[in-house]
Amino acid sequence: MTLIRLEIRKRRKSMVSWSVVIAVLTLLFMSFYPQMQTEELAALTQMKLQGFSKGFLAAFGLETIPDFAQIEEYFLYVFQYIFFAACLLAVILGVDLLQSEEADGTIEYLYAMPLSRKQIYGYKMLAAMILYTIFFVWMWAVSFGALYFLKPENIQVSVLFNKEMYGTILYTYLAALAYMALGIMLSALLRTSAKSASVGLGVFLITYLLGIIGNAVEKASLLKYGSFYDYANPSHLFYHGIEPVKGWILAGVAVGFVLAGLFIYQKKEFL
């Protein structure tokens, strides 16, 4: 428990910064909604989007062209960009977990404490999960807050809380955890000279691009399975419903990466 407290103490400022950024981003995106509400603009947007190829639209989560006048459709469209930032945070947090301690040399302090490698790995991972879960709840709370205050008066709040929305929350959380687990495994694998933010950004963008290419090019459709982001694309989940198999894949991948990271970390030495 002490290591969990230490880890949270170390990262709390950075997590607060991310939380503020994500809240500002959400509010900025949602502040456009009243403009979208006008039928003229919505029709214009629909018309413009119909001019693009199906593959191109699919690449940007627009395979089913949303009706931006509907607040939940507008929200789910803009939320994919907020989710993008959330996934990026998850992978950076994961990569940074062990790698930064080794690069800074602070891991020497932990190794001198009565903790096994397994405990260091496990407690640090739990701390990251706690921090990320708080961030995740905050992200959705701000999103729902924005939805609540911007929704047209004739729409009931209950419309926003349906099965698809709950599924979206669950799947986005699972996808973020899968990214974090991938980051943690890389953290155990990387040499100390690597910069965690650059590695995290690189890894996330590669998987994200795999998803874009997989969606845009039919011949390369298999590539989209390399993107955890794509498994939990909010717009896709809303229009097509949740697919339990994708949830299980995300959970399995997360557990797999965590176990692989533990295996690697137990053999790692501090030179």
Partner: peptide, 13 residues
């Protein structure tokens, strides 16, 4: 066991 490293690199925060 207590350990004193040659180069002290602790959490600066």
């Amino acid at each position: 066991v207590g350990y004193v490293p040659a180069d002290v690199r602790y959490y600066t925060c």
